[in-house]
Design a protein around this nucleic acid. Structure first.
Length: 308
DNA sequence: AAGACGAAAGTGGTTGA
DNA sequence: TCAACAACTTTCGTCTT
């Protein structure tokens, strides 16, 4: 996983350090000194052009998914009808008739590629919208776009909505790069439900032979920890616990988010920054019961005792 | 009163015949 | 295609702090 990092001018609220890097892969700002995740929302704001006066601004003021692309042709394409008559109803001479035939032929071709283009344009816009809402870095978008194009080439879109497929591609890209975004989070911003996205996802992954590693619970730790306002000490400990758990095979078959939540819960108590099961379960999007079951399990198998 | 606990029944997805 | 299955959820009553 490539980690692009650049300096920024921000000051860490935790330790006052100015050594803050931007992790584009995860869409997070991270303090190097104390490990605090400062902000995990890096929205892609606005367009890439600059406007130098108000007239230009008005002309270029559209940002986001161009919804009109969904409407067939926007009514702009030329129509050459099948009759060999000109606008006055007179017959067309044989010489120009041949020309008209050629025109018809090309028009048919153009219309087809037009539809494909429109499809792609809509899909890309949707991809941009989604990844921006989810604060995903460019690299993920590119990866998702690549997958989408392959899906189009292999005719995998037929029978599925563009929206569900784009969401599925995005999720696949996230999984591939180990960037922690859950299917649920993607579904929140997509206009399709989770089930539908999941179905498209499985289909595409299978058909395109995309190799995907099982989700690593450790990937979730920084994000969950920062949402819970936990220190880097706790994070470290949680990761330690998870490494042991993975080593002992306690994570296979378990939902990665449940395990991550449990590890954080234990770590938070150990380090005297206790969070309730409910708080932890909320950010991990699992139930308290699951957190309980997982943490009991970890506690037993790893021989961790918590004195309260 | 809030948090933690655990039992029991229900849900959606995977697997193997 | 169907049934068995494990993980997870929902719900709810009880105990603890």
């Amino acid at each position: 996983m490539a980690e692009e990092k650049t300096k920024s001018e921000q000051v860490c609220p935790e330790c006052g350090s100015t050594k803050i890097v931007r992790d584009f892969d995860r869409g997070e700002l991270i303090c190097v000194t104390c490990g605090l995740v400062i902000k995990d929302k890096m929205y892609d704001r606005g367009p890439e052009w600059r406007a130098f006066d108000s007239e230009q601004r008005d002309k270029r003021g559209r940002v986001g998914a161009p919804m009109t692309y969904t409407i067939h042709d926007k009514g702009l394409s030329t129509i050459i009808d099948w009759r060999n008559k000109d606008v006055h109803g007179r017959d067309i001479s044989p010489t120009s008739r041949a020309q008209i035939y050629r025109l018809r032929k090309w028009q048919r071709r153009i219309r087809v590629s037009d539809a494909a283009e429109r499809n792609l344009a809509f899909a890309m816009a949707e991809l941009d919208r989604l990844s921006s809402h989810l604060s995903l870095p460019r690299s993920i978008r590119e990866a998702a776009a690549m997958i989408y194009r392959r899906a189009v080439e292999e005719n995998l879109i037929r029978g599925r909505s563009i929206e569900s497929v784009t969401a599925a591609c995005l999720y696949a890209a996230c999984r591939q790069r180990g960037v922690p975004r859950t299917l649920e989070e993607i579904a929140e911003h997509a206009r399709v439900d989770k089930k539908e996205i999941g179905r498209s996802y499985r289909f595409i992954v299978k058909e395109l032979n995309i190799r995907i590693n099982p989700t690593n619970p450790i990937d979730y730790i920084p994000r969950f920890a920062s949402e819970l306002g936990l220190s880097s000490t706790v994070q470290q400990r949680a990761i330690e616990i998870l490494e042991q758990a993975i080593h002992m095979g306690l994570t296979s078959g378990r939902g990665p988010m449940g395990v991550a939540a449990a590890a954080l819960y234990i770590a938070s108590i150990e380090k005297g920054e206790r969070r309730t099961q409910r708080d932890v379960s909320e950010v991990a999007k699992v139930t308290e019961v699951t957190v309980r079951n997982r943490y009991k399990e970890l506690q037993e198998k790893l021989d961790i005792s918590i004195d309260v």
